[in-house]
Design a binder for these strands. Structure first.
Lengths: 223, 223
DNA sequence: GCCGTTATTTAGACTTGTCTAAACTATTTT
DNA sequence: AAAATAGTTTAGACAAGTCTAAATAACGGC
């Protein structure tokens, strides 16, 4: 009863990921995320609705029930703990962990995940800066906003990358940007919205508005 | 082409495990090991034979091809490395790791398994004393024999447990027996073939002939 | 060397998860 | 408000993997 198939878990995680702030997730978006077709998603939503994990209003998308959300949070927890393990202990690059964690997250063992959490010292954030739910599903609270919204002169701390696209992460590596760094916004180009940043030791560095939109920062760091 | 489904992998591993010394594995035994029915095994053997992993002689059982054996050895490698990780790093008991490793072994990432091997310092044996194939499929060579075959007075080293049954392992825990220990055979009861052993600090200890048959020991340890 | 037992295979069915194509609903455009 | 468009559902099909029941093959005993 309690255990879901891999495909069911994938759908639940996709809905969780798409369902920001009460919005329901649409078939097409779920299908795109899982590389399947909308019609397949319809079938699966019916099954998940029967199991009480999803509320499915035909033509109006799907949203998770409390039970479904609990399940999704545990999947996110597992995914992010494994990513942390892969980077911190096995020396993977942060751009290499996604697909492997995608497999590891489906391994089902309460004890395994609790031991892993302990072994990693109960991390609150994964290598991309994403929050890791605790064993009861609580997410650490923190307010972030996109770097793109900062004003010139702001000093901020890089908290997370909101899209774990491999090539974005590789770009950040190439520019020497990493989670936790303090950045100063030196200038904003009016022409394309790109930002001139200063950080670490070295000359200033330009990043596009697109990239800046994916970098999440915390409230100004105290100097 | 190269990637197998979980069920295909399970069958290949079962055949590998049953196929000692050139013997082929029989349907019924495979089915018992995988908790399925012989007829399901027949179907799967056909599929695996088509993929060139198994030689299937109807009514005469199945045996692995070179390709199949290579695959099986990689699965055994993954299984035993994960078991080692679970015991050495996450503090699992050696009687708790089997089912979890059974899931982890199906995660497919060359890099993951090589990094794990490195992280564990290239272990040659898993927590049960079973040899871990190296990345090219080589097994460390070692000759062992059952403790049951020892003569009274022998001093031997406990190398492995040939059956990873949970209750056997718990029994060994209870008696304080662990891989690597040096044992002295103090007496053998003619009535039931049980052995009286001395090891560590403590009084002698009796083990049944059945248990002694599952304990594999190395050539006499030098005193 | 025949007979009964046991194991294996075949045949047909079912479930899960997916697909395509066609029918349908909601939304946007004019 | 009707038509065009974009997304959703239904219907029917298929592959993988499993099952039961019936047919068939191998083997051990007498």
């Amino acid at each position: 009863m309690g255990t879901l198939t891999r495909s069911e878990e994938d759908h639940i995680k996709a809905i969780y990921g798409l369902q920001h702030a009460g919005t329901s997730a649409f078939n097409k978006d779920i299908a795109d995320r899982l590389n399947t077709k909308a019609s397949s998603v319809t079938d699966m939503l019916k099954r998940l609705a029967e199991k009480g994990l999803v509320k499915h209003a035909p033509y109006y998308g799907a949203s998770l029930t409390a039970k479904g959300r609990r399940h999704a949070l545990m999947l996110v927890r597992k995914h992010r703990l494994w990513e942390t393990f892969l980077v911190q202990r096995l020396g993977f690059g942060w751009d290499e962990v996604h697909t492997v964690a995608e497999q590891l997250e489906h391994v089902s063992s309460e004890k395994l995940i609790e031991r892993l959490d302990e072994y990693l010292d109960h991390p609150a954030y994964d290598p991309h800066g994403d929050p890791i739910p605790d064993r009861s599903g609580q997410l650490p609270q923190r307010t972030t906003r996109p770097l793109a919204d900062c004003a010139v002169g702001d000093r901020v701390r890089l908290a997370a990358v909101s899209d774990t696209n491999d090539s974005l992460l590789q770009l950040l590596d190439a520019k020497g940007l990493a989670i936790g760094m303090v950045l100063e916004v030196v200038a904003r180009e009016p022409f394309d919205g790109s930002l001139e940043l200063r950080y670490g030791k070295g000359p200033t560095c330009a990043i596009s508005a697109l990239v800046a939109g994916h970098l999440l920062i915390e409230q100004p760091a105290r100097p």
